[in-house]
């Protein structure tokens, strides 16, 4: 994670747009990855399996592994977004700081979920 690439060192007067739009881009990607991960992850209870038990199990694990991969990508984007330094003053910067704190909340929550999934996959809990 790069903490300070291109962040203006003059708070309040620097060009706000590039910094804020960089944050926005990371938000956007994080949202896309984690939304996709959630969609797969949430299917757990309704997903209909077909075939033999082994085939079902493989399909189920494959879905969870896919979700894990997407959560990881989303988490990376959240980390990058959170690392964007927001030193400016004014409404746009305040909103950006608000977004930053929400991304931090989701970083923790997504990481928790990822840990749960990884542990379950490791210990073979995910047997339909």
């Amino acid at each position: 994670v790069t903490m300070s690439n291109g962040t203006p060192s003059n708070p309040g007067t620097g060009p706000a747009e590039p910094v804020l739009s960089r944050q926005k881009q990371h938000h956007r990607k994080a949202f896309e990855y984690i939304s996709k991960a959630l969609k797969i992850d949430e299917e757990e209870t309704t997903y209909q399996f077909e075939g033999t038990v082994m085939a079902q199990k493989r399909a189920f694990r494959a879905r969870k592994e896919q979700a894990v991969d997407l959560y990881r990508k989303g988490i990376t984007e959240l980390e990058k977004g959170i690392a964007v330094q927001l030193k400016g003053q004014g409404e746009a910067w305040d909103r950006a700081r608000n977004l930053q704190s929400k991304m931090l909340t989701n970083l923790v929550m997504a990481q928790d979920r990822l840990d749960v999934l990884e542990k379950a996959l490791r210990t073979d809990d995910y047997m339909p």
Binding site: H27, F31, S35, L38, T105, D112
Partner: peptide, 28 residues
Amino acid sequence: QSQTATIGSASAASSEQDELSQRLAKLR
């Protein structure tokens, strides 16, 4: 949560993060 008169995209981003929080909390 951020319905209070903020400009489009910034509050949209904020709502999107809220949505993720809610869905993650539900799974938890």
